[in-house]
Design a protein around this nucleic acid. Structure first.
Lengths: 189, 189
DNA sequence: ATATCTAACTAACAAACGTTAGTTTTGTAT
DNA sequence: ATACAAAACTAACGTTTGTTAGTTAGATAT
């Protein structure tokens, strides 16, 4: 029974608008109107438009980072780790699809330290993922394709899942996980 | 020996900037400065900022549509058609990666008839792709997974290839086509 | 030489932007 | 009832936005 604070409400509403039109195309007046107040009133709860973006993106990035840390700590095979990561992405997509849109499309509008932090987290995440794939190839669990092609193919599918999940939204999450893992790992032929 | 007109130069420069920051975050003054003129002078060659976006996106969308028409006209199996489509995406990505970024990220900023045209072309393209997949499943050439999962998985990888191709840019295009087809069709396990 | 055309320029507009200052309303605690 | 704090408001700020109007320099055609 978490009751949303006003600040959370602002961030939520903003994330929906950002998802539809992108950060730059959404004005503070747009956000205020959607909530039912005047733009100036937003500043009783937040510091700036930037802060909304920063909260939205960095909180989500930390979820990915800690999810990755969890998977890395498990004593399972590389292939099983990849399965866990696919499931992690699907879980995050289902629960935070609006923030995910901002993370994907508007991260370059972060400024200063926020931008640096995000970029670093993203690079580390990809590096960890890449190493798991290389391990899997080394053990003969994965096909000996270029690791970068595999990494990209999986990540681009998972990263844009948010675009597609809403349309087919009524698909059961567990079914989705199963089919998605199958398609990504074992192909379609 | 195609010598670029001034209008083409404007569209080209704009597409690079749109790729980096998105349509809404790029001003006419940004575009002008990059070319080396004043913003007002742009209007000797183009009608509006909208027109730049429209040219960029709709011309590319027509390339996809006619590419799809070509594939549909071939007398080959569904599986081979999918291979052709993957190659089509890769070719377009290599040659028009900036316009592709705009098509992916900024199409919602199209207005009026342009937006309707784009949306319709996109829907038809996806519908055609989906039908090929269904055919392939019907013939037993493809695994009997949910067609929508297969369609989404392939399309999302191909659509975001532009983000990734530049980083690993020196990869030979034919090698890329081969590996990408292998990963997308036959999986990684 | 003169006229014409193209494409650059300067200057400016009205609208929209993020944000600040100052004021009023509203709910809670004493 | 009174005092206080939180959160809404109105009004305005300085910038930036896309775009228009009017002017000027340079090339081409007569």
């Amino acid at each position: 029974m978490k009751t949303a604070t006003r600040k959370e409400e602002i961030v939520n509403v903003a994330s929906q608008l950002f998802k539809e039109k992108g950060y730059s195309a959404v004005s503070m007046r747009d956000i205020a109107q959607e909530i039912g107040m005047k733009a100036a009133s937003l500043y009783n709860h937040i510091e700036s438009k930037q802060e909304i973006l920063s909260v939205l993106i960095l909180e989500l990035a930390r979820k990915f980072t800690s999810g990755m840390a969890g998977v890395l700590g498990m004593e399972i095979s590389p292939l099983q780790k990849i399965e866990k990561l696919i499931q992690l992405h699907i879980d995050i997509t289902v629960n935070y699809s609006e923030a995910l849109a901002a993370l994907n499309n508007d991260w370059m509008h972060l400024e200063g330290q926020d931008l640096e932090d995000f970029t670093q987290m993203r690079e580390e995440y990809e590096e960890n993922f890449r190493n798991i794939i290389k391990e899997g190839i080394g053990l003969g669990q994965l096909q000996p394709r270029h690791p970068e092609v595999i990494l990209f193919s999986i990540l681009s599918t998972l990263r844009t899942l948010y675009l597609w999940y809403q349309k087919r939204g009524k698909l059961d999450v567990n079914v989705l996980k199963k089919d998605m893992v199958a398609v990504l790992l074992r192909g379609i032929v």
